[in-house]
Design a protein around this nucleic acid. Structure first.
Lengths: 191, 191, 191, 191
DNA sequence: CGATAAACGAGACGGTACGTCCGGTCTTGTC
DNA sequence: GACAAGACCGGACGTACCGTCTCGTTTATCG
């Protein structure tokens, strides 16, 4: 006996959409499962059946709800510094336009729930990081990276720097911030 | 205007101690005011009389509850790379020993509550960052920093890199991680 | 109009059996359709296809699930008092052996659901009451009933008295209780 | 250390009033704790702090919410039959005017919850029954009760008969019903 | 025999209410 | 007047069931 109604794709999407909208409207802390269910026109149990926590819903909303920035690889013009600068500027402009609430919400979810942290890292952070690593690998092959530091470390430094700005200032980094970070990482600061 | 009873210092300390303990035990989200009051042997009103929210208590507990690492300036041996390495290694060992729960809890509090973010930044992050900046300033004067990147940016890159590792891996960075970050920032990676 | 599958008798019986068992185990209020379906190995829709409500299932289970006491007419030895005494004692012993949970569950169902009350009265209470009335009618014809009270009233007094004992004491009436009720009703208490 | 806010009498009364109103409006089964709390302008916890179940609230509402008939002793004119008739007629008229929903609700609560049954019996049924017993005791002393049946049995027969009519017919007994019951119990039906 | 169609088991769905937990406020003595 | 105690209102939590609605499967009857 197989059987059983299939998962409703329209409900799934309505939930992710509602979570996205409410997240941007009210922020992570004031986001409630009740409100998501009401806005999505869905029973609460339909949320709890498929997600284990508020953080998990938000993580999925970020991934599939049209909230996350698209997976755009850094350009490859041959000039690693210009390419990184362009890529980070693109990120900063997206953060600036969409507000920082998404990144703050994902950070809160990550910091509070280990399981969410794993999902987000695997499906949100890691793919973007991988694009960055690929570009850095090309640069290394081309002899454009002086130090022997592993590419993952470099990628982590770039991303972490911008995240730290968002957390400590609670506002989006500027294009200048992006440029400076690239300068520090690539140009080095040592004499 | 006759006087009344003065604020009880012992209650104040009991509250901060209880908040600190519970923060480490249960994390920020699962920390409740009721639990703090019960553990501290204090009425809830005594908490609300002096602090405005859970975040404010947590911020104070981090600062005064013996939770925050001491303000230790980076050494100044003249070798900026070695000094930064020592300072960051010191941080990583503290994070490793105390576990990552403190940093995760404070990150969650920061991401969720703007007011907490401000307090923590001003009284927790900024002072440490200032010590780092001072040392970097000395290095710049000594011509040990090649790039023209502002010192605050450099400090942010160093701190953000380590924070990002904690968030994405959910474990404390190693001494090697610290070394690599310093290498990237000081040595540069550009050809 | 071609035919379809016929109603499954085995499912029908499984549902009534499950309802009976669960009614005795948990009482009316804590009895759920989900539990009946699970215990019977049946889909919920199969219950709702044939019964309109929990009450309807319970009523049927009481009637057909082997739950109801058999329809045994009072004996007719010519001595109405002895016969009623025997009949009521028989009831009290059944209540005592089977526990009072059935009578309490059916009373709850009756009190909560008008439709259940009607079905149970028509198909459970009324037939038993009818047997009692028939015997009383015989007694009246034989001149053994002094008062002019209608036979239905007398039957109601006998049954209601015992039911009241079950409800107010929450335990089965004893044989002595049965005897006393018969004595009051037949012997009268007026001077 | 004594201390602590005292139980709010106004909340207690608002809860009982709301429960009474909603019981009469919607019946016992459709009465919800949420609705009581909302109507009373009270937090749900304030209900659960002081009562253990819906049945317990209803029981209290019946007792103190102005819902229960007042404790009126049967008259004592010296004629036990006339007095009982008057008393039971009084009850039937009250049941007829107030509807049977109260008696059905209390019966349901009694049948479903043993603890509620005890409370209701002690504080609702027993006091009324006691008044009846007292009057019957007087009659017995005066030699107006022929049979040796215990007074509590007689009282139970009178009350149970009327209750049975309410349950089986789902409508209030008439004055005629009351008269007939008294006739059966006092006049006897035996030859 | 094959097509048709109703009933089946399973189980997800939108809802409602549950009973609990906690936030932040208010009240009651005590110190 | 600050304090410990603790009841208060409000509101979100995660769970349990309701009665409905698909699913794919089984079983009977009819063409």
């Amino acid at each position: 006996m197989t059987g059983g109604r299939r998962r409703s794709e329209s409900s799934r999407l309505a939930i992710l959409d509602a979570a996205r909208d409410l997240l941007l409207e009210r922020g992570y802390e004031r986001l409630t499962i009740d409100a998501i269910a009401a806005r999505a026109g869905v029973g609460k149990q339909t949320i709890y059946r498929w997600w284990g926590s508020k953080g998990a819903v938000v993580a999925d909303a970020a991934l599939e709800g049209g909230l996350a920035p698209p997976l755009v690889p850094p350009p490859d013009t041959g000039d690693i510094e210009a390419d990184l600068r362009a890529w980070l500027r693109d990120w900063t402009s997206r953060l600036a336009s969409g507000g920082t609430s998404l990144i703050l919400a994902l950070t809160a979810a990550t910091a509070e729930d280990h399981a969410v942290a794993d999902v987000l890292y695997e499906r949100f952070t890691a793919p973007h990081e991988q694009l960055l690593r690929d570009r850095l690998e090309v640069a290394r092959m081309a002899g454009q990276l002086g130090s022997e530091a592993p590419v993952p470390t470099i990628a982590g430094v770039l991303i972490g720097s911008l995240l730290y700005r968002v957390l400590s200032r609670q506002e989006a980094p500027t294009a200048d911030d992006a440029d400076l970070v690239v300068r520090v990482v690539l140009g080095g600061t040592g004499g």
